[in-house]
């Protein structure tokens, strides 16, 4: 007898939960829930993106979930975070994959679970089921870096110049796209420039500084450094200042950390290539909300937001506009 009562109670509880759940799903005034999952949350690029995402989420009445590994830009830590997010059943997911193949399965699993997925900044290999892919024009940013280095060293045809590139990882698609753009511009316009080496910092600015110090020994005639992201820019700037090489070696960095923007004025950076991560996040939320509410796909799936070159000639207003703001 006791057992049958227990079973009846269990059935009624399950039934009540199911009813409640279906009630939730049916309610149309439930706010849309959108999750952002990125690599290293500490990266100021993502912090700046968060500012834009929060603004847009507030304007659209969207509940925002913001989650990434605190400081590791790593597939191994990002995949479980995506799995966890899928379990929370958001309406939309903005994924910033740390690796194009490593995150493919998690990306597709979210889509299979009925979540509208956007890729921002970096992307998975197969984008066919993704609502939108929004990125800064990294290829063009790389080309702009080549132009800035060439201008600084007074590039003349017939002369030879050594440059090196500091990256964070060999697989981050933004790093790869910037490097490709940089290489293409050099091949097309500056045949005298040779990219002698690339090295990885794995998100640690101390490693980035150490790489630059080693390069200074290895290439005594080093003409320029392309520091492909904020971490490398910080490390390279510190190494050149410590060795009293400010202004003697062309240093082009990426990402407008406030501290690095200040270093344009003092001549440490020849130029910084800046993206607009806040604009990327705003557009991602807008597109996903439109898709979730109206089931409307964007007219164009892939959107490219231009990069800008910040240098000593950039107006104060523009510098302010593109400098990343912390929360």
């Amino acid at each position: 007898m006791k057992r049958s009562i227990k079973i009846a109670a269990a059935i009624s509880i399950v039934g009540a939960i199911a009813l409640a759940a279906s009630g939730c799903a049916g309610a149309s005034n439930q706010p849309i829930k959108i999750a952002f999952v990125m690599g290293a949350e500490s990266d100021p690029f993502f912090q700046a993106m968060k500012v834009g995402a929060e603004e847009e989420a507030k304007a659209e009445g969207v509940t925002l979930i913001w989650q990434g590994d605190p400081s590791h830009y790593d597939v191994a830590t990002e995949v479980p975070i995506v799995e966890n997010i899928i379990a929370q059943k958001p309406d939309g997911l903005v994924l910033i994959p740390t690796d194009p193949d490593g995150l493919q399965a998690a990306n597709d699993k979210a889509i299979a679970a009925g979540i509208a997925v956007a890729n921002v900044d970096t992307h998975v290999t197969d984008l066919s089921k993704v609502v939108t892919f929004i990125t800064g024009d990294n290829g063009d940013g790389g080309a702009k870096a080549a132009d800035a280095i060439a201008a600084k060293i007074g590039y003349t045809d017939g002369k030879t110049y050594d440059v090196v590139v500091g990256l964070t990882s060999a697989t981050a698609t933004t790093n790869v796209a910037r490097l490709d753009g940089f290489k293409a511009a050099i091949a097309a316009k500056y045949p005298g420039i040779t990219i002698q080496d690339v090295a990885y910092s794995a998100s640690n600015p101390q490693t980035a500084a150490s790489n630059v110090e080693n390069w200074l020994t290895k290439y005594p005639n080093l003409a320029g450094i392309f520091a492909i992201d904020g971490t490398n820019a910080s490390g390279a700037a510190a190494a050149l200042q410590a060795k009293n090489l400010t202004g003697k070696i062309a240093l082009v960095g990426y990402d407008a950390y406030p501290a690095n923007v200040e270093l344009i004025q003092s001549g440490v950076f020849t130029a910084l290539i800046a993206q607009d991560p806040a604009a990327e996040a705003r557009l991602a939320i807008k597109t996903l909300v439109d898709y979730i509410k109206n089931k409307k796909s964007p007219a164009q799936r892939d959107v490219v937001i231009a990069n800008v070159t910040l240098d000593a000639n950039t107006s104060a207003a523009d510098l302010k506009k593109y400098t990343y703001v912390a929360n």
Partner: peptide
């Protein structure tokens, strides 16, 4: 070494 406190210095 880095001329400041960087949050990923120990990563």
């Amino acid at each position: 070494r880095l001329g400041g406190g960087s949050p990923t210095s120990g990563t």
